[in-house]
């Protein structure tokens, strides 16, 4: 497969997305637009249904004038970038030590049973996917999970049920 034939920079993305990425680029000194690679990938992942594809990554590389491999490196290093489709609600459950000793196993098991999926899987209707994550820095509220931008703490099976119902 050949490298994507890259269009002009202003043919990439919508004007709104370009403005958003440009806003990120502006945070850094002149000539350091590579600094915006993480933000650009985040923005593109969000509008791409929560995951990245090679084509999207190549576009980000072209937009930032970087070799594609520089973007692949970043996109595969950080755990928040997804390379397979995810559910509309990506349930990121912490199983690290404070959560583990506060029964995160039970939370995971409840989700496995209720949704019929394991870590790394998506429900058939595309509504939920499950992801095991490392410590999210909310150990005081263990066990916890993150969905989208929000943290849900002090989880119990009952609490989970009502959270799941609220997530469209």
């Amino acid at each position: 497969m050949n490298a994507l034939e890259i269009k002009n920079r202003d043919e990439l993305f919508t004007p709104e997305i370009r403005a958003e990425i440009d806003h990120e680029i502006a945070k850094y000194p002149e000539g350091e637009s590579q600094s915006a690679s993480m933000a650009a990938l985040r923005i593109i992942q969000d509008v791409n249904g929560g995951s990245l594809t090679q084509e999207r990554m190549d576009e980000v590389a072209a937009y930032l004038d970087l070799p594609p491999i520089a973007i692949y490196e970043v996109a595969t290093f950080y755990s928040m970038y997804e390379h397979k489709p995810v559910g509309r609600n990506k349930l990121c459950v912490c199983t690290n030590i404070s959560c583990m000793i506060n029964n995160s196993d039970q939370i995971v098991e409840h989700l496995n049973n209720k949704l019929g999926i394991k870590f790394g899987e998506v429900t058939e209707d595309g509504r939920y996917s499950l992801k095991e994550v490392e410590c999210l820095g909310a150990c005081g509220g263990a066990p916890m999970m993150q969905v989208g931008q929000k943290y849900y703490e002090n989880l119990t099976p009952e609490k989970l049920d009502s959270i799941l119902d609220e997530l469209e």
């Binding site: 350091e32 590579q34 993480m38 930032l64 490196e73 290093f77 950080y78 755990s79 928040m80 994550v133």
Partner: peptide, 21 residues
């Protein structure tokens, strides 16, 4: 904003990360 990597708490990894690497 970081992207999910514990090691970026190490100061020089954090600098690399700000540089977009």
């Amino acid at each position: 904003l970081g992207g999910g990597a514990y090691v970026c708490g190490e100061e020089t990894a954090l600098l690399e990360s700000i540089e977009g690497k």
